[in-house]
Write a protein that binds this DNA or RNA. Structure first.
Lengths: 213, 213
DNA sequence: AAAAGTTAATCAATCGTTTAATTAATTTAA
DNA sequence: TTAAATTAATTAAACGATTGATTAACTTTT
């Protein structure tokens, strides 16, 4: 044989992780049965316990795998030599890009925080998010120290608005879809809307933060 | 007998409606069993089927009861003789007041829209919200026509930010609580934070919308 | 007497998890 | 290099528990 058989199939563990992230985001943790999950992933139901211990620990594995990536991005911009506003703008654009590419994980963690049913999950997620907010806060404070940003703004509430705007698009795209008269909810996540969201967020935060917009 | 025995106890139907709204908001629809619900409401489990037909129809009854109230408030401000900005500001303040008073219903409908598991529910909720957004849009357009509001802003994205900011506080108060170093999540919903949220939203939307802020 | 409301018990279905048996892959020993 | 031994991976079947819903008997109200 000249060519090895290409290994297209991913292993059971990875299949479970990916399928679970997608299904949990779509239907919610409780609504996804272990049977539905294992069938969709194309593996035996016992593989959940074998690789993760339980359905709940599978959820935690998803969180632990994806949360750290967000932090790396933020630190990258934070430590760059961009001006404060450029840093903030770059981060906003990066977040928008990400959720338009794949919003399942964001949907997942926001709903988990909203429910607060599983303290272990919430704790993990909260610690991750807290670190991100601290970095964002520092950037805004940096801009204030440099005399570029207004000092009479509420930093935490401003972050609430930035992430609130984004999560509104992630968690209830059906509203925007209906208002924009799209037939299908997924039509929301196209290049046109992405551009509009970026432009709007930048414009709004800019006029809110900058002393000389 | 001079005095009738005061009827303090609410009937089974009302007890189920109130308890269900609270529990669904806290734990999610799937996580609330009919046994947990009926026990908490202090009625027999069979009362759910007797009064509503099923657990799902009980959910729909909650929606149909509360959604119309939101519309009345909006129309009231819309038809008032306030200036566009005053209308918008009053509505924002009203929404903030409401969620700080009781956020369970808001939490409920946002999670339902996020999940989109039960199309009948989503449809009901969406129609209600769509009407609200249309009224808000008209107010903004009214301000634009009067030359008070900027014309180069994205109306729908602006509404996304307003409601996104509010729903961020409703759905993930734990983030704000952690950032603001509150011990308990519920400490977020106090008068201080309410004032801050109102002030921030007004300030941000004002500088975003008004030509002469 | 009729209707409305309420009860405890039970229904089949599904839940997450576990078991014991079997196959596949890897390591060890000759 | 080969065969045996060991470990890892996977399977179908079953576990007890819980799910939403229903039944028929009973009590209260009209």
């Amino acid at each position: 044989m000249f060519f090895k058989k290409p290994k297209i199939e991913i292993d059971a563990r990875e299949a479970l992780l990916q399928t679970a992230a997608r299904l949990f985001a779509k239907h919610g943790f409780e609504a996804v049965s272990t049977r539905m999950l294992s069938t969709e992933a194309g593996v035996n139901i016992a593989m959940i316990a074998y690789y993760f211990g339980s359905k709940e620990k599978l959820f935690e594995a998803i969180i632990d795998e994806r949360l750290p990536k967000s932090r790396e991005m933020l630190i990258g911009f934070f430590e760059s030599n961009l001006e404060p506003w450029e840093k903030l703008s770059a981060i906003i654009n990066h977040y928008v890009e990400r959720i338009f590419n794949d919003n399942s994980f964001t949907k997942l963690i926001y709903r988990e925080l909203s429910l607060q049913q599983r303290p272990a999950h919430s704790e993990r997620i909260l610690n991750g998010i807290l670190g991100n907010w601290e970095i964002m806060s520092k950037i805004i404070e940096e801009g204030q120290d440099k005399g570029i940003f207004r000092k009479d703004i509420d930093v935490i509430m401003t972050l609430n608005s930035i992430f609130g705007t984004i999560s509104q698009m992630v968690n209830t795209p059906c509203i925007s879809a209906k208002v924009l008269q799209k037939v299908n909810e997924n039509e929301i996540f196209d290049d046109d809307i992405k551009k509009r969201l970026k432009s709007h967020l930048n414009q709004m935060v800019k006029s809110h933060l900058l002393i000389n917009p």
